[in-house]
Write a protein that binds this DNA or RNA. Structure first.
Length: 707
RNA sequence: GGGCGCUUAGCUCAGUUGGUUCAGAGCACUUGGUUUACACCCAAGGGGUCGGGGGUUCGAAUCCCUCAGCGCCCACCA
């Protein structure tokens, strides 16, 4: 007896090994023998999908449901068509997000991360991971995802970590990775740098402050406009446009920064706009990217006024130790009191905020590791442009190309502990020399050679404190899960790579997809996947983004309990046009649940019939069967076509109508014997066969249909 | 500021190369039926100047221009 939908939630784990497993072989035989689906000429070739690894301590949300249902449908279809389908699951250590959670947890216990040190902190982080990790994988099983579970990977697994380190070393040796003192995005909450992609610009209503700076040796003043008066402690120049006639009198003069009374030069630079503000600019080289350029050009002093947590350091004088935003208010008051504040006007501007912590990002100068991107981007751009890697839907090609053509070097170091520690080792009296190697021992060898000093010992080496950006491990995912970094020629990677599909959201097109394409070419000179299916965002029925704050995101687990995994899967797929956001409505899950029940009821009906051997084949039924058989073949071709074009919801709708309207409402009604009467053997047999085939087509989507 | 996309029935969306298979689907709705598979059913039905305006064409939801509204991505401007 079959178990069903909302009653029972089960999952099938179908392992795919290099040689087909027994279960797999059984599936394959079943499909080929029954010819419900034509096996393709490519049958038995690998068909691989690597899962976008969810955060290890994460919980299933609507996006996951959508994403993984799609992957499951694709992988089941491949399996049915006779491919050796392999779907690799796994989780991501999510450096910054996980570390933030652990820091918070410790804080609640009155423990400060800095006090306990790296080792003890990592112990806590691993405890946390062991406790919460893997929950999300169990939830995926509940959703019915037929992953190859014994292949499950975690980005901090030993071999995965070794892969990351090796790639770092390789790219460093190729000269693609370098260390540089740059203006980077600093997240004062997480106290780490961020890559450009991790900064989200949000429009904020701010103010523009007009402040008078005195001119040295005169009673004149010059008025500058700024949105950040608190940074005046770091001012080391005032800039004007060389041809600005309003200010020709200032050429060669010096200005006095209020409050600090620092005498700074008035510099001339074309960069200054004649229209904006007052045409006169304060220059804070340490805290603004443009000002840094001016600072370098005019050889200005760089004065860093902030502590890592966003409070002011001793440069902030009497504001030392106070938060930057509190200081802004106080500085404005003080300026007003001494008459330096001329006026304040409202001003909207885009503020950079941290993707993870939402903190306002601070531009900050520091030593960081970078990966040169320009050379890596070239083959990756070509791959997408000539459709060697196909983006579905195509509209994302433009976005992709634009980003890739303007790509900047990737800041890959993070001032965190949870992650892959950078394999760079410093030595020398001031740690001024650096070597990069997979292990401490290898580093020591390199250091000895580089320094010519054979007496160096491990104690003379200090490893870089920083870890790598999480995405620096994710970008290797399709390769590293098959151990393709450490053993580039191994059987598995040669067989499974490149993979066929990547299913993910457009929000990580740059974070992840583009970088995987780049890593594929730089490490293996081959694309990582042939198709990228970009799903839409799941929104609520009013079109709002699902978010914790709004509380409009349904509990994925509860949803499955209410409607069954099948109901939820159908509900999501019904509106799953690629690349379009979908407005999620629970009614669709209800529809999905109804669909599952419809099949269940049809099964009960057929089961209830008793065969009467004395009856000769019914003629009406034969006509019905012929009609339905042809209808079925026709629809099957349509469904296949929809799938080939990634029109998953259309494929589902075609299946839905075939079963509901054609099979149930027409065929079964025609064939159904009158109450109390039996059915002839031939008709019964044919109906059963057709029923088997009809459920085959929905097996892609419904996981529990077993007849 | 630059780029991309969307606007079709009450709702969510299809509509691929412009032409009697182009005005569609599902849900919702209305009416009738059915009470021994399923009220999670069956049948029939109503409902849209395809965002506004202009143009190209024998012919436009489909191509071009323009306006309006919505959304997304990118960008260092005080």
């Amino acid at each position: 007896m079959p178990t069903f939908a909302h009653i029972n939630v089960s999952y099938m784990s179908i392992p795919s090994k290099f040689t087909p497993s027994a279960i797999e072989q059984k599936w394959y035989d079943y499909w080929t023998q029954n010819k419900y689906f034509h096996s393709t000429p490519d049958a038995r070739k690998p068909y691989t999908i690597v899962i976008p690894p969810p955060n290890v301590t994460g919980v299933l949300h609507m996006g996951h449901l959508m994403n993984n249902t799609l992957q499951d449908v694709l992988i089941r279809r491949a399996r049915m068509r006779g491919y050796n389908a392999c779907w690799v699951p796994g989780t991501d250590h999510a450096s910054i997000a996980t570390e933030a959670k652990v820091v918070n947890k410790l804080k609640n216990q009155g423990i400060d991360k800095a006090d306990i040190g790296r080792e003890a902190f990592l112990k806590h982080a691993w405890d946390w991971t062991d406790e919460h990790g893997g929950i999300i994988l169990e939830q995926l099983k509940k959703l019915g995802c037929s992953c190859d579970w014994e292949r499950t990977k975690f980005t901090l697994d030993e071999d995965m970590s070794a892969s990351v380190i090796q790639v770092f070393v390789e790219l460093y040796e190729k000269g693609l990775i370098y260390r540089g003192y740059r203006m980077v995005h600093w997240d004062p909450d997480a106290q780490t740098t961020l890559s450009d992609e991790e900064v989200i610009y949000e429009e904020k209503q701010g103010k523009l402050y007009y402040i008078a700076y005195a001119i040295e040796g005169s009673n004149e003043k010059v008025v500058i406009a700024t949105t950040r008066p608190e940074t005046l402690f770091g001012d080391t120049a005032v800039a004007i446009h060389p041809e600005d006639e309003r200010y020709t009198a200032l050429h060669g003069k010096k200005a006095i920064v209020p409050l600090v009374n620092r005498v700074v030069p008035i510099i001339k630079d074309e960069y200054v706009s004649l229209e904006l503000g007052t045409g006169c600019l304060k220059v804070t080289p340490a805290h603004d990217e443009n000002d840094k350029i001016l600072g370098d050009k005019h050889k200005l002093e760089f004065i860093d006024i902030f502590n890592p947590d966003g409070t002011l350091n001793h440069q902030g004088l009497h504001y030392k130790g106070q938060d930057r935003f509190a200081v802004r208010k106080e500085v404005v008051k003080e300026l007003e009191a001494n008459g330096s504040l001329i006026k304040v006007t409202p001003h909207t501007h885009k503020l950079g905020t941290s993707e993870r912590t939402k903190a306002v990002v601070e531009p900050r100068l520091s030593d960081q590791w970078f990966l040169q991107m320009e050379a890596l981007a070239k083959p990756a751009i070509d791959a997408v442009e000539n459709e060697d890697v196909q983006l579905v839907p195509k509209k994302f090609i433009n976005t992709y190309r634009h980003w890739m053509n303007n790509i900047r070097d990737w800041n890959i170091s993070r001032q965190l502990w949870w992650g892959h520690q950078i394999p760079a080792y410093y030595y020398g009296t001031n740690n001024e020399n650096v070597v990069v190697a997979e292990t401490e021992e290898k580093a020591l060898e390199k250091a000895k050679i580089a320094s010519g000093n054979d007496a160096l010992t491990l104690n003379d080496l200090t490893q870089d404190e920083d870890v790598l950006d999480t995405w620096f491990s994710s970008w290797l995912w399709p390769i590293s899960v098959f151990n393709g970094v450490l053993e580039p020629e191994n059987e598995e990677i040669s067989y499974y790579y490149p993979t066929q599909e990547l299913v993910t959201g457009p929000d990580i097109l740059f974070f992840w997809v583009a970088r995987m394409i780049m890593s594929g070419y730089v490490l293996r000179n081959e694309k990582p996947f042939s198709h990228v299916y970009l799903t839409g965002l799941v929104r609520d029925s009013q079109g709002r983004k699902m978010s914790k704050q709004l509380g409009n995101s349904p509990d994925a687990i509860k949803l499955m309990d209410t409607y069954g995994a099948d109901g939820v899967r159908v509900g999501l797929l019904l509106s799953a046009a690629a690349g379009n956001d979908l407005l999620f409505d629970e009614n669709l899950c209800q529809q999905g649940k109804n669909f599952a029940n419809k099949i269940w009821n049809a099964f009960r009906l057929v089961q209830s019939w008793t065969v009467d051997e004395t009856l000769s084949p019914c003629k009406t039924a034969a006509v019905g069967l012929d009609w339905y058989t042809s209808k079925f073949q026709q629809t099957l071709a349509t469904i296949d076509d929809h799938f080939d074009k990634y029109r998953i919801s259309d494929a589902l709708m075609a299946t839905y109508k075939l079963i509901w309207d054609d099979f149930c409402s027409w065929l079964l009604e025609i064939v159904k014997p009158a109450y109390g009467e039996g059915i002839d053997a031939e008709t019964y047999q044919k109906v059963c066969a057709l029923f088997g085939s009809v459920t085959c087509s929905c097996k892609l989507i419904l996981i529990n249909v077993i007849v």
